[in-house]
Write a protein that binds this DNA or RNA. Sequence first.
DNA 1: TTGTAAGCGTTATCAA
DNA 2: TTGATAACGCTTACAA
Lengths: 341, 341
Amino acid sequence: MARGREPTVKDVAEHAGVSPGVVSRVVNANGSVAELTRERVLASIAELGYRPHSAARELRTRTTNTIGLVLADVANPFFSQLADHIVRHAADAGLGVLLTTTQEDPAMELKSIELLLQKRVGGVIAAPGTENAAAWRHMRETGVELTFVDRFIDRIPGIDVVGMNNEHASHSATTALIERGHRRIALVSGSSETSTGRERIAGHRRALQEHGISEDPALVVELAFRHVEAETALSGVLALPQPPTALIVGNTAVSASVITHLRSAGISVPQDLSVIVFHDAEWTALTSPPLTVVRHQLDDLAKCAVEMLHTRLNSAERLRRREKRLPSELVIRPSIAPVRG
Amino acid sequence: MARGREPTVKDVAEHAGVSPGVVSRVVNANGSVAELTRERVLASIAELGYRPHSAARELRTRTTNTIGLVLADVANPFFSQLADHIVRHAADAGLGVLLTTTQEDPAMELKSIELLLQKRVGGVIAAPGTENAAAWRHMRETGVELTFVDRFIDRIPGIDVVGMNNEHASHSATTALIERGHRRIALVSGSSETSTGRERIAGHRRALQEHGISEDPALVVELAFRHVEAETALSGVLALPQPPTALIVGNTAVSASVITHLRSAGISVPQDLSVIVFHDAEWTALTSPPLTVVRHQLDDLAKCAVEMLHTRLNSAERLRRREKRLPSELVIRPSIAPVRG
DNA sequence: TTGTAAGCGTTATCAA
DNA sequence: TTGATAACGCTTACAA
């Protein structure tokens, strides 16, 4: 854990024959300093290989250029692509990113929050779970700027939210299936405790209602996270006396394992089952048949999240909650077809 | 960037009616403190919601529990899964992870190094590019512990390396194709300036030589990163007067786009072309035909990298360079077949 | 067992 | 324009 001794402002000051204050002013380009001495200081900095010590600076100025990023799981292509874009945009804004993952485990999420609190990060971008509302609220009250991305928790003031139009996207997906004659449409969703889960279920319901189709609760499967659960839950739905003729997968973490399961169960897509999945991962056009997907503009999502946080970090006032919804697009591919018979 | 005022050791000390030193000793469980006062201090900590200030602690102790993670690109499933595991194992070891990505751009890599240097991270896990050897060396000399993962740069002393047995894996892949009668085997590889690129090319060559097959340089394509290049380079190879009958994709970043390209070019796998790709992404069994892959144990890779770094961080001595190679496995699936005719 | 005081590397204030 | 000095929050000798 220990680090060797590296040159400090004091070393630079001595080397350049000035006082530490001058060096600081040169480095931060604030106070006034004569051009000649400025050059001398810069030369010394270069020669000694001086690099400002972040921790010391943070301690003194009570500021930081580090933000936290709290995601469930970076192995999920949805989150990993999001993370990639966020890290890039943050770097463009001069912000470092401390990444933590929760694996959808509330205890790990709490540990993440604790870590970021101790690190005194200036802000956090998070796709929060459902259990730690109090901790998130506390974090915000502590003065940490917070931007929820993809999902959010209600009723925490002064937190920005940027997500997709899940209700609309889900409505479109279900409608596309209804238009093809489907009446029994299964939905594999994330937990309805998450905002995305709720919204996707709501959009689905609205589409059914608009077409006078009664809901069958047995067709809606909520999956928190785990793939094993996905297998059994899915088997259950497919084994119903009146099995679904179409399936929407609204939980990005399980898309691939759902497709795998369908294949090993000998279910032909779209003959036996039409399929739509959320998130256009790089492989969705490569399966046979290629999958109809709800495509999200992850780069926009990331850019928006970083911008929102960045403006908050640089604004003295306490801003009100802002919410932004980005559009998504239903990309029709051969995995959906008119219902048989 | 600014943060509000939060309770300090001093506040806790006053509240508990002790001195700051005692509070510190309670928090860090080192020096001796009477059970009764300890309880009083803990109560005050809980009541005030005190949290030690990382930066202050780092400044004073010259230690940190943050490590850097420098990867090319977290959108690439190989790196994203690796990152997920690394973050998890690091968290288990009590380490926070500052993630930076380089997009294979040397300038961005340099900025990452600079950032991590300023943050005075205790150590860094990196999949380095080829251009910044001097900067990496300098980082090491500065006292930052360094573990290269997946790829590495030679000739930097005191740096651990953990990677896959690329030479062997590539040899196996090529051999599997040769055994099926293939003689013209194309290899899409990462840059031969990277250790992985070199090793995979070497293994490929060895297999060819062992079977008395002469190399055709036109069949080896080095791709640094970009997908657009992948398209044109691949087209070139497939349009050769004597086109390959088999293809190995040794650059995980382009696997999906290569498969996409083959499909849109109307090339049937494995009839026209047998295909093997490196890295068993979640979708490789879902294409038609399912892809033969070189499967890496990413979790082992991650665990090993974190462990190596962790031991270095906690060891006073300057350890010598260690190198570890993990096995990989060729998973045969229908994308390879005996050569036609 | 506890308190005191110095110092980690910065930056901000104030005088010169 | 520059330099001296204090303070950010913490840990750690050392003294009591």
